[in-house]
Nucleic acid binder design. Structure first.
Length: 291
DNA sequence: CTATGGCCCTGGTTGC
DNA sequence: TGCAACCAGGGCCATA
């Protein structure tokens, strides 16, 4: 579920509760969440380390660890579809959410106070794993859409170089890192591009429009702490985001296009539900049309 | 290289 | 009301 804006929000809200704290214990009730090693091995890797910094890379939350002031690996957390990070100041609650806890870390603050970081994940697709070298572990990711490397010129050239359908290319994290199904649909709509166009046939001015659309969509979504439209995504504080109120096409099948009023259509592109306005995002070629 | 389909999981919604 | 089918903010892997 969570895409870049939701992960950015998660990292920002969890950061002040984690930075400077020391990990005093680790528990895992769903082994696969750890992405490989046994619980004991994971525990040995992280217990005793201090969380020096919390950052985001693409859809990953990165907890940078230190021992005796020196770098000591990282915890990489990917929320996938239903993952959440929450910090409890009090001992864990055994409510409904507690049932979805997959991993947790005990924490001690510099002043002595304790807390618990919980990784909750209904569908269990998410990951909460330790790596020695986060740069190596995340080396295959493409540029950050809000980073310096992602310029209009970069996008123009990168699109031209790929012989792929546009939407799946934008979802490919090795091409551009952080977009998911929602923000791709929203960005393509805003740029007036049909999701099934060939990347290398996108004209320069459309590529520029797409660049702007991606950045403005993500920035506005971050401002609103992401999108929430069912029980799943909540910020670590338990609040829903509010960007869903600004969706122009995603999840709006049959509702009027905000630009031209035509009903939004839903199609499937690369196995993903896809939402477009057929007028504002003209198809690459009129399929089956001849005369 | 690119594309496709299965798979990992659970829960909410829809339709008969 | 009951129940099956379908759907979901993701990504990996094997196969053409």
């Amino acid at each position: 579920m969570p895409e870049l804006p939701e992960v950015e929000t998660t990292a920002a809200l969890v950061r002040p509760h984690l930075e400077g704290r020391v990990i005093t214990g680790a528990r895992a009730s769903w082994l696969r969440s750890l992405g490989g090693p046994a619980v004991a091995e994971f525990e040995a890797s992280v217990v005793g380390s201090r969380i020096a910094e919390v950052t985001r890379r693409a859809k990953w939350v990165v907890l940078h660890l230190e021992r005796a002031g020196r770098p000591a690996g990282s915890i990489l957390c990917h929320l996938r579809m239903t993952g959440r990070l929450v910090v409890d100041a009090q001992p864990g609650h055994a409510d409904r959410e507690g049932a979805f806890e997959r991993v947790s870390l005990g924490l001690r603050g510099p002043a002595g106070g304790t807390a618990t970081l919980r990784f909750l994940d209904v569908r269990k697709f998410g990951r909460f794993r330790f790596v020695e070298d986060h740069l190596e572990a995340l080396a295959d990711l493409g540029p950050e859409p809000l980073g310096e490397e992602f310029t209009e010129e970069w996008l123009i050239r990168a699109l031209k170089a790929r012989k792929r359908v546009l939407k799946p290319l934008l979802l490919d994290q090795t091409f551009l890192a952080g977009l998911g199904n929602i923000y791709v649909d929203e960005s393509l709509f805003q740029a007036g591009l049909h999701p099934e166009r060939s990347a290398h046939q996108v004209p320069k001015d459309r590529a520029r429009a797409l660049h702007g659309a991606i950045q403005s969509t993500l920035r506005q979504a971050i401002e609103r702490e992401g999108s929430s439209f069912d029980a799943f995504y909540r910020t670590p504080e338990g609040q829903p985001g509010s960007y869903q109120h600004l969706f122009r096409v995603y999840g709006r099948e049959g509702k009027p296009c905000p630009t031209c009023g035509r009903p939004i259509k839903r199609l499937v592109v690369a196995q993903r539900g896809t939402h477009i306005c057929t007028r504002c995002q003209p198809a690459p070629r009129a399929p089956g049309k001849r005369r």
